[in-house]
Amino acid sequence: AIYIQEVVSGKRILISHHPGLNSAPAWSPDGKRLALVLSKGGNPDVYILDLDSRKLRRVTRSFAIDTEPVWSPDGSALVFTSDRGGRPQLYRVALGDGKVQRLTFEGRYNARASWSPDGKYIAMVNGDRGKYRIAVLDLASGAMRVLTDTALDESPSFAPNGSMIIYATEIGQKGVLSAVSVDGRVHQRLMLQKGAAREPAWSPYLQ
């Protein structure tokens, strides 16, 4: 099941409880819709839920696994992970006409997309030869650049100004947070005194 939890009050609201998978929720930029993954039709597919009307729209139809939807900054498209080509890769679907386009071709694994606030780049986890690193795709040119040199990177998230990408990695068998600039020139490590860290997500600008 998928719930929305109010941060201040702690109140939980049940949003989705269909048979099978209910997973990978993602807010639309205007906060009025939720992209999510449901398997109620058989295979996992991407859907959009209107939070006011509770109307559900199916976005993908595939015999493969479609998951991890991420909204474009203007709300006109989604990027998602699918193995419809044989291995996990990133695809973009235009919400206007439903056209699906494959975005990634370098590496055996590309997943966990994060769209830059200006809409120009997609950050992802790029897997090849047993190493999982953070990479960024220039949507205009189609060029991909691997930004990190560690081997177990995950969960990239763009800063609100689009200049840095925070992600989780493993150093000395401990989960830590690191950050890298979009051009790969600046690297930072955020060490915790206790415990391990995973699944970072940058908050939006707060008024």
Results as ranks from 00 to 15, higher is better:
residue 44 P to I: 07
residue 172 G to W: 02
residue 26 A to D: 00
residue 70 V to R: 14
residue 168 A to C: 04
residue 26 A to F: 00
residue 26 A to Q: 01
residue 196 A to P: 00
residue 128 D to T: 11
residue 107 G to P: 06
residue 132 Y to Q: 09
residue 30 D to I: 00
residue 121 Y to T: 02
residue 189 R to W: 02
residue 3 Y to Q: 03
residue 126 N to K: 10
residue 14 L to E: 10
residue 85 G to K: 05
residue 171 I to D: 12
residue 168 A to T: 08
residue 189 R to H: 10
residue 104 T to H: 14
residue 35 A to N: 02
residue 28 S to E: 09
residue 65 I to G: 02
residue 114 S to H: 04
residue 101 Q to L: 07
residue 54 R to N: 13
residue 26 A to S: 12
residue 100 V to N: 02
residue 146 V to R: 01
residue 198 R to T: 05
residue 24 A to Y: 15
residue 62 S to F: 11
residue 202 W to D: 01
residue 90 L to N: 11
residue 16 S to Y: 02
residue 9 S to M: 03
residue 49 L to K: 14
residue 141 S to W: 03
residue 45 D to F: 05
residue 95 L to A: 00
residue 131 K to D: 11
residue 89 Q to V: 07
residue 202 W to F: 12
residue 34 L to S: 01
residue 155 S to N: 10
residue 41 G to H: 15
residue 103 L to Y: 05
residue 118 D to C: 02
residue 122 I to R: 08
residue 157 S to D: 02
residue 201 A to Q: 14
residue 13 I to T: 15
residue 62 S to A: 13
residue 98 G to K: 01
residue 10 G to L: 10
residue 151 A to Q: 13
residue 92 R to M: 15
residue 159 A to W: 09
residue 125 V to K: 01
residue 6 E to H: 08
residue 150 T to K: 13
residue 151 A to H: 12
residue 153 D to A: 06
residue 97 D to M: 09
residue 138 D to M: 04
residue 38 L to T: 10
